[in-house]
Design a protein around this nucleic acid. Structure first.
Lengths: 84, 84
DNA sequence: TAAAAATACTCCATAGGTATTTTAT
DNA sequence: ATAAAATACCTATGGAGTATTTTTA
């Protein structure tokens, strides 16, 4: 049985990668064609579900945590293979 | 930009793999702890979104189509890498 | 004081359940 | 006659939008 998707959905990965790329929630939200609050909530939810902080928010500056950086690498590697 | 998840979610992959493994909707639904109609609908939706038939339903016998077989192989390879 | 993310609220799309029907053997 | 999937109908969860607040440089 596959377990990951009981918690995390594609949406989360997609959103995460957009924020990780932009390091800016508003810009990422525009790129994703969703609202900034919606994006913030989903990232927060993702962090809660994983029990891991993915971003450090020092106002006017968003950074990836170590865990976030690791996840970004992993996803960049494997995520795209599922797009045929 | 990642595109796949605008249509398909983890849920679909998970459900698909369960049916592909069991070749039986009811058994697969039990394994997934969801109802048989819910599973049938999600698989149907997945096929519609992909525009590809994944299973042949001859009553009392479910078979993977060629496309389904291919997808099963691909997912078996890549899907699990996303589980840390 | 302004730029950015978080919170409050609301709404609605849809995943999923129960009951039933259809289908083929 | 029965086993299995599909369909009909309904409900409730949660994703997402707008408006606003909080935060810090």
């Amino acid at each position: 049985m596959i377990t990951i998707s009981n918690q995390i959905e594609f949406r989360h990965f997609k959103y995460f990668l957009a924020v990780a790329e932009n390091l800016h929630f508003r810009k990422a939200s525009e790129q994703l064609y969703i609202s900034q609050p919606g994006l913030s909530r989903q990232i927060k939810q993702m962090e809660e579900k994983l029990g891991i902080k993915l971003f450090e928010r020092h106002n006017r500056k968003v950074e990836l945590t170590k865990a976030g950086l690791y996840l970004q690498k992993e996803l960049s590697l494997h995520f795209k293979k599922l797009n045929n």
